[in-house]
Amino acid sequence: MPTETATPVIELRHVDKHYGPLHVLQDINLSVAKGEVLVVIGPSGSGKSTMCRTINRLETIDSGEILIEGQLLPQEGKELAALRAKVGMVFQSFNLFAHKTILENVTMGPIEVLHTPKAQAEAEAMELLRRVGVDTQAAKVPAQLSGGQQQRVAIARSLAMHPTAMLFDEPTSALDPEMINEVLEVMVELAQQGMTMVVVTHEMNFARRVANRVVFMADGQIVEQNTPDEFFDHPQSQRAKDFLDSIKGH
């Protein structure tokens, strides 16, 4: 495990959140060090997406603190927007801007938020699209691309902001099986280049290959966390054992 002495890139302290009577996040404490790859795993409805989304405040929290590079997450306005720009997010459903071309999707953030000159933004975008292998599709619109291609564009769109960390919420769950690997490959490469990542996923091979730590969530709580090999081979809690049995059964 990485040392905890340096300021964590992402830190959650005693985070609580309710949806009406549902206590969806219960006293969540989590810290992600620079360059660390954290895989979040757990049954559906356990609060993984909610936790992921609180980190860039797509969801508000009831109590507790969230810090990005030691800075408290602002509540609103330009400060919040500026902090969000530093944390990339990749969604299960890609969410590419439907009315923009692939190239425009990737240049949108740099041009509108970082005020990068258009020519430079486009050059960088093309380089990123090449990196994720969809540069030949630059002039198309999202609906013309396959799911795997769209998700790789979504990753390039996040990378264009030069984020300090990236959040992935089940990035391969909406994909046909034959497209899962092309997206995971891009993510593995990112991890190996030292990107700080929080990845909600059930892809065990991915976790074993690149994760520094696996966090197991159930019913709004972090039940256990460990290195991937320890967690998958010797889960401690009964809930984790049951869950792993259920996904291995497939």
Binding site: A81, K86, F97, V113, S158
Partner: peptide
Amino acid sequence: VPKGQTEAAMALGMT
């Protein structure tokens, strides 16, 4: 307009 469009833009840091 699907909510994901707004969320993706928010995640980029757009106001």
